[in-house]
């Protein structure tokens, strides 16, 4: 599925948190490449730095050191405003707890990131409808999140991530709040998106779901300790 072009390149990325007089090394010397169209999962035990790495990849946080090139542009030193703009255009987020806004309808939730761009209302409407149709939720666009099941909410969250046609989808434990049936359905949806050409980076601690990715990065104590390809994963399974 990859076309060989590097979409994300992290070189020697470190992240240190300072609290009072304590330094916490969340990430140390991370090297990571993600190619366009690739499906990568990041796995590891709790506290290993998975979410910190995803925050940096998603431009929610900046590395303490190292370089980060997204889609050919160095982004490690951008200010909050520029990071917000690139996040909006390049990245689609799928969160464990869905993070839909309860006071907005399904339609408005999906439309939300598009309102942060200079996009005309008809164009937004078209994209929202396409995204919702893609995840099979177009019939619920006037509902509020509280009126949907967990699986449906996560589908809406996926639609929201897709709406802006991002370069990469970042999924943080997308099945963590779902039962197994809904979890499988969401994973199937991500698979389908990947088959259609989407680049996906997913954080998970569940080996069952990690195997859906072409490649899995294993983190431990803030370092990449292993990388496994899909074929090997299947072997190991």
């Amino acid at each position: 599925m990859t076309n060989g072009q590097t979409l994300i390149n992290l070189e020697n990325v470190t992240k240190i948190f300072y609290t009072d007089e304590v330094e916490t090394h969340a990430l140390s010397g991370i090297h990571l490449d993600i190619k366009r169209g690739e499906y990568v999962s990041i796995a590891g035990p709790s506290g290993c730095g998975k979410s910190t790495l995803l925050s940096i990849i998603g431009l929610l946080d900046s590395p303490t050191d190292g370089s980060y090139v997204l889609n050919g542009r160095a982004v490690q030193g951008l200010d909050f405003s520029d990071r917000a703009r690139i996040r909006n255009q390049e990245i689609g987020f799928i969160f464990q707890s869905f993070n839909l806004i309860g006071d907005l309808t399904v339609y408005e939730n999906v439309e939300l990131p598009l309102t942060y761009r200079s996009m005309s209302s008809p164009e937004r409407k078209k994209r929202v409808q396409e995204s919702l149709e893609k995840v099979g939720m177009a019939h619920r666009m006037r509902h509020y999140p509280s009126q949907l099941s967990g699986g449906q909410q996560q589908r809406v969250a996926v639609a929201r991530a897709l709406g802006g046609s991002p370069s990469i989808l970042l999924a943080d434990e997308p099945t963590g709040n779902l039962d197994s049936r809904n979890g499988e359905a969401v994973m199937e949806l991500l698979q389908q998106l990947h088959r259609e050409g989407a680049t996906i980076c997913m954080v998970t601690h569940d080996a069952r779901f990690a195997k859906h990715a072409e490649r899995t990065i294993h983190l431990f104590d803030g370092k990449v300790v292993e990388e496994t390809e899909a074929a090997r994963q299947a072997e190991m399974a």
């Binding site: 929610l60 917000a84 703009r85 996040r87």
Partner: peptide
């Protein structure tokens, strides 16, 4: 959520 989705 708004900020994560790109709201400046």
């Amino acid at each position: 959520v708004r900020a994560a989705l790109g709201a400046r």
